[in-house]
Amino acid sequence: MKNRIRFDPMRLGIYTLLTLFALLFLVPVYVLLISSFKPFAEVQDLSRMWLPPKQPTLESFYVAWYGIPEKGLRGLSLNILNSLKLTIPATIISSMLGSMNGYILSKWKFRGADILFALMLFGMFIPYQSILIPLTRVIAAIGLGGTLWGLILVHVVYGIPITTLIFRNYYAEVPTEMIEAARIDGAGIFKVYWKVLFPLSLPGFVVVIIWQFTNIWNEFLFAVTILQRPELQPITVALRNLAGSQIKEWNVVMAGTLIAALPTLLIYIIMGRFFIRGLLAGSVKG
């Protein structure tokens, strides 16, 4: 088969097209990089907008990270920390719930389990605007208003459908015979999970954790309505505020954008394979 790959105009065309598309996809990255390494004076010079910095500087990253306290400009370092404090617990809790749910729904189907599953799944498609007004009130009523835990609870709850879905599809591929065998040895529901399914779950967990981490890290609507205290804001909200300020230091905004994007981007680059699996699982059938 390999021998068939040889030079011909058709293949040259294919590679040219692919490269062209790749360059187009990278345009925003290019702009992001060159702008964030420019000093303020240079980024103001619009004739140089598309040219690389004359003298690359880390100044804007410094400002974006530490802020300028005397000017009331907060740095993003705190917000990155907030996002981590939010994303990590929410990811772990929702993955565990999803794993248990997926196990039950794939291996212990009781009457009506499929209907129940469909009803659960619907929760991941709804426009969150349609639950936002009650949500803010309930979160406040249970004393979690304006706290990270409130937002964590929200992400756990609305993460249940997708994590359940991915695990259900994942466990569906585990042969029923393995479960039967364990049952004959007298294992109950949880023992089967613990002895048979859980040891096989690592790839499933990786997919789900990556997926949830990315989604929660990138989420904006819940964060902006539930958690507005500046010292608790996650990175997406802080970034939007930075970009929405009256006087735009675009080099700082671009540096901030890069900072905000980096964690999920790194995960994607390092663990792309699992990321794609999560992506495909999102289309219900898996």
Partner: peptide
């Protein structure tokens, strides 16, 4: 909260007061 002569801030404030 930056932006919009306070319109962004007012939205944020309203949700904070609500909650």
């Amino acid at each position: 909260v930056a932006g919009g002569a306070g319109s962004n801030a007012k939205a944020v404030l309203a949700t904070r007061m609500q909650s």
